[in-house]
Design a protein around this nucleic acid. Sequence first.
DNA 1: GCGACTATATATAATGA
DNA 2: TTCATTATATATAGTCG
Lengths: 211, 211
Amino acid sequence: MGRQKIEIKKIEKKSSLEVTFSKRRTGLFKKAGELCVLCGAEAAVIVFSPGRRAFVFGHPSADAVIDRFLHRETNSRALVPVGQVHGHVQRQYLEALGRLEVKREQEETVGGDGEGGFWWDAPIENMGLNELEQFRGSLEELRKKVADRVEEMNMMMMMESGPSSSTAMVEYAAPPQEYNSSGGALHGHDLATHGVPHGFDFGFGFDEHLF
Amino acid sequence: MGRQKIEIKKIEKKSSLEVTFSKRRTGLFKKAGELCVLCGAEAAVIVFSPGRRAFVFGHPSADAVIDRFLHRETNSRALVPVGQVHGHVQRQYLEALGRLEVKREQEETVGGDGEGGFWWDAPIENMGLNELEQFRGSLEELRKKVADRVEEMNMMMMMESGPSSSTAMVEYAAPPQEYNSSGGALHGHDLATHGVPHGFDFGFGFDEHLF
DNA sequence: GCGACTATATATAATGA
DNA sequence: TTCATTATATATAGTCG
């Protein structure tokens, strides 16, 4: 994002590392703030510089967010198998997949985690970068293959029952997911009206104005 | 940053709010990761969507960073570098992911492979149209997930903050959620007692050498 | 209600004082 | 560190399938 493209790897030159750290930290906080305002989200960002200095952004406050985050942990129960928490939509996918005769025995082997996960969790988590990249490539291929197959089948159906009835049947069987709309109340503070948020920095005192 | 300039104020249109939230959250995490890699920093980002869903990014792990942050007053300077406790880089990374990511909603995708070939060798030619469509949907998810992971891992591999680097990016499901930290996150901390009541609070640096 | 695609808005790397 | 500048790299708002 500058005069020149840079690789995302550790900056060795100390001087520019510091500059970059400062700029990007500021940018990060700004983005976080924007996300909060735009979407009514709550967020906390904690950054430790390599020199062990801490910088924190929080809305409504870092502590509030962290607290909320930590409390959820303490209060909730033990591990729940993935499928249980979230609804039917996913289940349908899984059922469909199950019919593929994909080796389910792996469920026990790879899943490892006992009740914690399903077999499809493992592959990704345990793959090395190369494997992942290869995996990704293969996925693309497969996706194409599947897409083609779908088209092909549509074509066939069209020929069987006429052009008018084909399209409707191609819809996703899975009903649109309820994206967490209920109770989407914002938590009190409407920042949009505050204009410029105030900032603190006990270390140096910049970052006063982010917007 | 788009076709059109937007004001930084709450987005009312729910549909675009969700899209924006998703896009910007991704962007935020990416930036956080870059900051970590480029500057050898440690960071945690916690975001609660208006729908109460929690999303977390952490390097080396959200736990580690939060823990460190919470101990700032008492141990701040004498703190044992969080990283030292952990062992092998990749291992730690995977553990963190395995521990957290399992509970992701998106996890309910496909995946897995056999010893011989990959699972997609399964006969798609035997699938019905609906199944194919569903399958395609699942593939899409998986692909995205894999792509994300590749990026994460690329980032991780570039990090040279010693033997303890890792990065975790996680989405927690809403109300019922478990997070059994093995790494020593603190529970039952009364955070709400200090900090800024509301609004933003930036850069809460505490004394130490700058870098 | 994603995923891909752009046209723009922003962030920021390099630079110089 | 800081600041301003500015050329570019990125992020992302809108749009379409």
